[in-house]
Nucleic acid binder design. Structure first.
Lengths: 244, 244
DNA sequence: AATATTTGTATACAAGTCTATACATTTATT
DNA sequence: AATAAATGTATAGACTTGTATACAAATATT
């Protein structure tokens, strides 16, 4: 390891910028964990073969952004930043994470069709046993898991959901194509519960850790229920923000 | 249009580098077509609100890379670069296009199952009439069509191909998931033929124009035929490179 | 209390980036 | 042949980036 990290000179990107991006991606990759100390400026300068002041500038730009905190005499530490997650009519994960100056990401865990349970049918305005689309996604910020969401979709409003989702890779884009781009959240229920084993594995926390559970209903512009969701947020990273 | 393009100062990325990247992405987006003249240095300098020499440096870096050609007294033009396409054991479109300093892309034209023709069955080691997966893709470099490929896949080796392809969006990734990541090309046949109307439409050339037609067989590490392909390359853009 | 470690500040200088101006050279047009 | 337009070259200065060195101030350790 630590094989003279690759910084390119003379390509139009300043050294401090390259180092800042490398540090940020190392944080996102979990190489430097929140709360832990970064190597000292001297060490980083040696690692990247640059002057200490160049490292200082890289650290400075990340500190200004809130990702690092430097204290004279102690060292530089990775911030433990919580994500402020507003629960409003218009809630879009990637926009929220970007607004928190983190890099959003995610992956599809599973998807398919199933018969609606009584609970799902009630909230989607269907009969129990009708076929609905069910999907589960894991969302991350700076490479760290934030939330797992399970959702059920009214098939009649978005007939080609699975194929379209495969093509577009985003629920909201599929809704848009189906003419339901202006969907909105109507009701939400929030509770704090212990995390089960399945979610704990996905979110990389221990089972039983407190998580926020949010049930909500999304409706089309005309008020028809289109999506019922059950989202679980890591309690140690996310703060929900209610009200307008 | 032309609303004072956004160049950021003081963020660690030099202006010439930002302009070079913008020009390159404009070329990739087809805003500046191969063979056409770029705006003059004066005009570009005005557009980006920088000195002419800064634009010159951006153009210089792209010219060195082969993307632009400047001639004194005439102007600066987008190069008509051919893509050197090696036909080797390990052939991956996106890697090749990137190696040619172009931006790879593509879209799925069609996919489904069909009964294997005698020709397909023979090359996949199956019986005529057995069901195989058939797909057709259009591949582009810098936004311009390069090749249309039709392929037939041995269903028994990649059972979930269609669903996995929808999720992963790449043939090689699906093969990887099926445990056949190390597939390789064994045989290829090359010929020059006139382009038919269907391919002409996809590749945006006139029917009858000469194209390169390459049939090939991909096999798994253990030598089982997994994919039979028929690729058509635009003769005016692609040069095949044989041998190591 | 003394010491070592670490970040913060200051100053000087070298190198790279961007601007400004002027002029040369080639090409295309009139 | 003359002119205009475009790229190529040259030079000088302001600004930014990176290096070098020294020292101050806060923290942790002994």
């Amino acid at each position: 390891m630590s094989v003279a990290a690759k910084i390119e000179r003379g390509r139009g990107v300043s050294l401090w910028r390259q180092i800042a991006e490398k540090l940020q991606s190392d944080i996102a990759a979990g190489i430097y964990l929140p709360g832990t100390q970064l190597p000292t400026e001297q060490e980083l300068a040696a690692k990247y073969s640059v002057n200490r002041h160049t490292v200082r500038r890289a650290i400075g730009s990340l500190a200004e952004e809130g990702a690092l905190t430097a204290t004279r005499g102690r060292g530089t530490f990775v911030s433990e930043r919580t994500i402020l997650y507003p629960i409003s009519e218009r809630t879009r994960f990637s926009e929220i994470v970007s607004a928190n100056k983190r890099q959003p990401g995610g992956r599809l865990i599973s998807s398919g069709e199933e018969a609606a349970s009584a609970e799902v049918a009630e909230h989607l305005g269907l009969e129990e046993g009708e076929m609905v689309i069910r999907g589960e996604t894991l969302r991350v910020a700076d490479g760290r898991p934030i939330t797992v969401g399970t959702y059920w979709i009214n098939k009649s409003l978005v007939p080609n959901f699975i194929a379209d989702y495969a093509e577009l890779g985003s629920v909201s884009k599929v809704f848009e194509r189906a003419g339901c781009g202006d969907y909105r959240r109507t009701k939400s229920w929030v509770s704090a519960v212990p995390c089960d084993a399945h979610d704990a594995g996905l979110m990389q926390i221990t089972a039983g850790a407190p998580i926020l559970e949010v049930y909500s209903i999304n409706v089309t512009e005309s008020g028809e229920p289109i999506q019922y969701t059950r989202a679980r947020f890591r309690g140690d990273v996310v703060q929900l923000e209610l009200g307008n």
